[in-house]
Amino acid sequence: MHYQQISSLGSHLFYMMHTAAQLPEIYTSEAGAVYQCDRHNRLMLSFAGELTVLKLDAFLRLKRSVDKIDLDAMASSPDRSSDFSIITVCGCDRCFVLPLTEVYALKELLSGAKFVLELNSMLHECLNASLV
């Protein structure tokens, strides 16, 4: 994905637009995608038509927050306040207000991205080990 393409998704990348380098795509689902910017050590979450730039810490916090949401309770509760979940985390300037289906989609997207981050970490370790 090119910066020019991403820039149309949000204003956060304005400061990075001086280069047209490609961003590695970490994980994609029907609901969105997560990219990694090696230049700034940031992750970019493209979800529900908006792009959010996150430090790794904030990404992990967001994942923990989303994982904590009880989807079964949301689905079974007749209370109107259970129709949506509000997700805000420190280090992320976006407030997610999501219905059940989108919470599920975000959960799946973040889990997939986290898995690939861990896989990348393992690959780095294997490559380092092969050099010894």
Partner: peptide, 14 residues
């Protein structure tokens, strides 16, 4: 692709 997890900390999440 950089290993962001390892750059952040030497500790695993667990």
């Amino acid at each position: 692709m950089k290993d962001l997890l390892r750059l952040r900390t030497s500790l695993s999440e667990t």
